[in-house]
Structure formats: structure tokens, C-alpha cells
Design a binder for these strands. Structure first.
Length: 491
RNA sequence: CGGGGCGUAGCGCAGUCCGGUUAGCGCACCUGCUUUGGGAGCAGGGGGUCGCGUGUUCGAAUCACGCCGCCCCGACCA
């Protein structure tokens, strides 16, 4: 068993931290609230990035890059926006250091004060819309469909590896459209892209929905989201897509000339997912032995562990696997033949399990002579002996099966942990003694939502899309309600 | 910003209360031999401004004062 990972039931947070650190996904840094994403963690991000980037391109988007710094005055042009972000902005005030005249080291040169402070972007709407003003004149310039891969900084009071760090990596799409209908369609389309990515690549079932006014993005007219359930039953927002109306167009005076020759403000969207998804991936699937990675995002899909009694065996087994490795490569399946003879097989087994490698093959001389190979799958921890002949096809199918199994398991868990409640007593009881999401009627007022949050710490995660309409009464106020919404405690 | 915890070798810790040999232990690391089908064994070896500063003392990891950093829990947030 994995020696060094705190079991989930003992301390879920510690389990999560142990996984991140001990599997080499990330490390703490000397900067408060900031993390180092180590090669193994970054490889997962690269896989996520590649899949998403492809989907963005397929839906007509192009990449660009805007500055890290935003003039302070830009941020305040959209009232709700600045209010939402003001409390967590890093600010650049000076542009030079000098030697400390009183001793060693350097100090900020007081004479090098910026005339206007620069904000390290917490998100890029303002700097981007400042550019869009110059790029958009006519309906022929629309739609403008741009994405940026970037880092952003939000000075969080309390941070957690991947889930909430002061600096994080993400993508942010920023689009401009001629009509509100088109912008809303874009908003929903990108939510669909995120949903498909979460379910097909991350094997993470999500609920698509809209945020309530309280939870809406600062500056948005409507915020759509996908919500996922972690193994401890807490909700995690996995992606957001915003319909920004004309808020930023008006703030930055971005108008276009219509076909009819009229000046109108453009309609906008923005949407993003971040390295937080890595946290979601870990918390959704992993177990007490380590990571469980879905094959489609695993940096390494197959590991081959030779079991040898000397250099001769190693060479024989390697030779045996050569055609297999060639075939795997041709199919785009990533693999590693671990010929490191300074570590013993048992150590390697435990190590690759901890790192969540989906499939492990082991071969010693017994298998070699018998024409077989041992196959172990990480998701169920099942081991079986297979014929070496035809192993490539077997692996190919197994990877598909593992991907599906991980998703189904997560979906079954989530579905089993959504509880419908109809009275306030039931609600309180479920929040205090149960786990997971609550589906309940709500009267639609921010006041009620606020009150419930105050009393239980549960928030409305979303109003599901395509939500069945049914008459009921608000679980808190007793006022009439037409649909149920999802409540949960959240990350 | 409040509450709690912790800073001693790369990691995890003991030693601190009650000051006194050369600051220990486990893991990891290095060398050699034997091993290799579930985290190997033996032998030898390297590695320390005891978070920082000031003070008390013949003497400080240990006592006093100040500072810094990190983790966990809460308020804020993706």
C-alpha cells in the first residue's frame, strides 16, 4: 500500500495535499500563495490545453496575447467589474530598484514611481476591450472570436494547491458580436465545449447551469457554469462562460456600424477554465493509493515493467516488446519501458500506481517463456495474465474501457449524492448530516439565497439548464417556485 | 485579518519543559556486494548558519524579547 499518503477518511484535505506533493504534480514555492507546477503536473495541463485549444480552433476561435499589466484606470471603467476584483489585485507602483544606501541589498527607488499604477491582470476584459475599440468598426469585423492562454493573479487570502492559488494559468476567451442572440449562442456553445471536455477527457460528469445574481461574474449579465462533485461531496465550479451584454462595449465605447448604417454597441462574451481543473481531476477520481488519471489526460498511459535477473533478461524482454512499442507509438498511445535496474519491480509498481498510470504491463521470464504478459489496470486495481499475441489491441480497448469506467463511477457517485429536499428541516438535516448536492425549490430572491448561505454555508451552485419546470414552494421562505436549483457547499 | 499548529540534513521527526560531551533517529542520497513476480538485505560513507535578529549566561537548538515564513481552520473568492 502507498506508504506516504494520508487516507481520505482520516483527513480529506491532507489526502489531497499529499497526492499533489508526493506524486510530483506541484510543489510549494517561496512566494506565499504561489505554487510550482512540476513537470508531471504540467504535462497534465499540456494535455488539457491541447484538447481545449483544438476545440476552440474547431469552433472558429484564434489565439492572441494581451499584456500582463492593466492601467488602473481601465479596471474602473466598468463599475461592477472593478468592485468584484478590487479587493484582490496586485499593484505595480514602481519600475526600478536601487542599492540600499544604508546597507546591503536593494530597495525600491522612491524616485521611480509610476505616474499611473499598473494592475497585474486578475482577468483581461478591460485591457482587451480597450484594444477591441480599435479593431471593430463595422459589422464586417464581427464576430471577433479570440482566446488567450495566460497567467492571472488574484491575491487570495487563503490558497490551496491548484484549487486556489494567487497566480494561476488559464485560458480566457473574449468575443464580440453584432447581436445579443449571437452572443448568447456563443456563451452557450462554449459552455458546451467545456462540458464535452470535462466529460470526455476528464471523465468528470458536470451539471450545466446558470449562476444566480449573487454568484455572477463581476460585469456579466448572465454567467453560465459547469459544476462538478468531488469525492467529499463538495461542489467545484469547473468552468464558466459569461454573457457580458453591452457592459464592456459601453465602458470602452466599442461601437460598430450596422448594415443599415447605424452605430451600435457590440455584444460580448468571455469564458475560461484554469489549472484548477487539475485539482478537480485529482479530487474526482483518485484514491488512497494515489492518483487515478483518465487515459485521455494521463501523461503516461502505459508503463512496461520488466522483471529481470540480469542484463540478459532485460535485453530479451526489451526485444520482445519492440514491435509492441512501435505499434503503440503508431496509435498515439504513450508508454514507457522502465529499464531502470536500480529500482526493484515492487517499488515501480507502487510508484506508477501512485502516479495514476492507467495501464501497467509486467513481464518476467515466466511470462516470456509462456508467451504471456501481466496486465494491471489502475482504476480497478485488477490484474490479469494476457496472451502477448494481440496485446496492442487489448491495451487499446482497455484504455477506452478505463476512460469509460472512471466516468461512470464518478457519475454514479454524483447521482447517488444529489438529494431532493422539500422542507427547511430536511434541508438543514441534509446539510449537516449528509454529503453532496441538494436539489430544492427556491423563491428566486437574493435575500433568501443570502440567508441560506449564512445559516448553512451552502450556496446555490447553479440553476440547471433544461431544468424541469414544476410547481413547488421555496424550501426556506415558502414562497411559490417553478423549479428546483442545486445547493451545495463548494470549494 | 482572527483562531490553531509548525520552523533542527532533501523529506519526516526526537531533543526545548529543567541551558552543559562531538546535536540524534527514520526515509532519501553516495560506494560495494548480494538481490529483482508487490515499496530488498548487509557493510561502509557524505550531508547541519538548529527560521532570522537582539539579549541573558562561563556556556544557548534549549531561557527572554522582537521579527520572518509556512501549513490547517474561518471570513473573501474560480
Amino acid at each position: 500500500m502507498a506508504k506516504e499518503i494520508t487516507p481520505r477518511v482520516n483527513d480529506y484535505s491532507q489526502w489531497y495535499n499529499d497526492l499533489v506533493i508526493k506524486t510530483g504534480l506541484a510543489d510549494y514555492s517561496s512566494v506565499r500563495g504561489c505554487m510550482v507546477i512540476k513537470p508531471y503536473g504540467y504535462a497534465i495541463w499540456e494535455n488539457m490545453r491541447d484538447a481545449l485549444d483544438k476545440a476552440f480552433k474547431e469552433t472558429g476561435h484564434v489565439n492572441a496575447y494581451f499584456p500582463l499589466f492593466i492601467p488602473k484606470s481601465f479596471l474602473s471603467k466598468e463599475a461592477a467589474h472593478v468592485e468584484g476584483f478590487a479587493k484582490e489585485c496586485a499593484v505595480v507602483t514602481h519600475y526600478r530598484l536601487k542599492n540600499d544606501p544604508n546597507g546591503k541589498g536593494v530597495i525600491v527607488d522612491p524616485e521611480a514611481k509610476l505616474e499611473e499604477e499598473l494592475i497585474v491582470r486578475p482577468t483581461s476584459e478591460t485591457i482587451i476591450w480597450n484594444s477591441y475599440k480599435n479593431w471593430i468598426q463595422s459589422y464586417r469585423d464581427l464576430p471577433l472570436l479570440i482566446n488567450q492562454w495566460a497567467n492571472v493573479v488574484r491575491w487570495e487570502m487563503r490558497t490551496r494547491l491548484f484549487l486556489r492559488t494567487a497566480e494561476f494559468l488559464w485560458q480566457e476567451g473574449h468575443t464580440a458580436h453584432a447581436t445579443p442572440a449571437e452572443a448568447i449562442e456563443e456563451t452557450e456553445k462554449m459552455l458546451g465545449v467545456y462540458t464535452q471536455f470535462a466529460e470526455e477527457f476528464m471523465a468528470l460528469p458536470v451539471i450545466q447551469g446558470k449562476k444566480t445574481a449573487n454568484e455572477r461574474f463581476a460585469g456579466a449579465v448572465e454567467t453560465y457554469c459547469i459544476e462538478a462533485m468531488m469525492q467529499d461531496g463538495l461542489a467545484l465550479q469547473a468552468g464558466t462562460s459569461h454573457f457580458l451584454g453591452q457592459n464592456f462595449a459601453k465602458a470602452f465605447d466599442v461601437q460598430f456600424l450596422t448594415r443599415e448604417g447605424k452605430q451600435e454597441h457590440v455584444w460580448a462574451t468571455s469564458w475560461g477554465v484554469s489549472t484548477r481543473l487539475i485539482g478537480a481531476l485529482i479530487m474526482a477520481h483518485s484514491d488512497d493509493d494515489g492518483l487515478v488519471l483518465p487515459p485521455k489526460l494521463a501523461p503516461l498511459q502505459v508503463v512496461i515493467v520488466p522483471i529481470t535477473k540480469g542484463a540478459d533478461d532485460m535485453a530479451k524482454i526489451y526485444e520482445k516488446f519492440e514491435p509492441v512499442m512501435k505499434a503503440l507509438k503508431a496509435k498515439g498511445i504513450t508508454f514507457k519501458f522502465d529499464d531502470d535496474d536500480t529500482k526493484r519491480p515492487g517499488f515501480k509498481f507502487a510508484e506508477y500506481e501512485m502516479k495514476g498510470v492507467p495501464v501497467r504491463l509486467a513481464m518476467g521470464m515466466r511470462d516470456y517463456d509462456g508467451g504471456t504478459v501481466e496486465v494491471a489496470r489502475r482504476d480497478t486495481k485488477e490484474k490479469s495474465v494476457q496472451q502477448f499475441e494481440g496485446i496492442v489491441e487489448y491495451i487499446e480497448n482497455l484504455l477506452v474501457d478505463i476512460q469509460a469506467n472512471i466516468f461512470n463511477k464518478a457519475k454514479a457517485f454524483r447521482d447517488a449524492n444529489i438529494t431532493e429536499v422539500n422542507t427547511w428541516d430536511e434541508f438543514k438535516n441534509q446539510i449537516e448530516n449528509g454529503v453532496g448536492f441538494i436539489s430544492a425549490h427556491w423563491d428566486g430572491t437574493p435575500e433568501t439565497e443570502e440567508k441560506i448561505k449564512e445559516l448553512t454555508k451552502a450556496t446555490i451552485r447553479c440553476i440547471p439548464l433544461n431544468n424541469p419546470q414544476q410547481d413547488g414552494v421555496c424550501v426556506f421562505s415558502g414562497q411559490p417556485s417553478k423549479e428546483r436549483v442545486i445547493f451545495a457547499k463548494a470549494y
